[in-house]
Design a binder for these strands. Structure first.
Length: 111
DNA sequence: ACATTGACGGAAA
DNA sequence: ATTTCCGCCAATG
């Protein structure tokens, strides 16, 4: 079953991120019991992007510094930032302001 | 089938 | 404190 795939789990978690909140690749990886597979998380998102029909809020996932590391994958170089600011998340120079305030940790919020 | 790469992150030097 | 290295797992060359 595909729902057991690493990717599927990633997609599921990302979909749980509430409006106006953000999380990190590492946090998701950790939640999936593979704390060191953070690279795979972003990679999974990239794969999901090709596959339209899978609309997941990938813009709510940033690296641990709150930097929009994957903004280039959103077509235009400022699409990701606009999406975030549209949700009340302030971004300055590709970095989220008050990152801690917007941070949503699946390890805590999800059981 | 083997090597390299990637939206990362933590440990080691 | 800063820089470098390694692991994670799947895909691509």
């Amino acid at each position: 079953m595909k729902s057991d795939n690493f990717f599927e789990k990633v997609y599921w978690v990302v979909k749980q991120i509430p409006f106006g909140k953000v999380t990190t690749y590492g946090a998701i990886a950790k939640y999936l019991s593979s704390p060191k597979a953070s690279r795979m998380v972003g990679w999974a998102l990239n794969a999901s992007f090709k596959n339209k029909g899978f609309t997941i809020p990938a813009h709510r996932v940033v690296n641990r510094l709150g930097i929009l590391s994957g903004k280039k994958y959103f077509g235009n170089n400022n699409t990701m930032q606009e999406l975030l600011e549209n949700e009340g998340v302030n971004v300055k120079k590709d970095k989220i302001i008050n990152f801690n305030k917007h941070f949503w940790d699946p390890n805590i919020e999800l059981i």
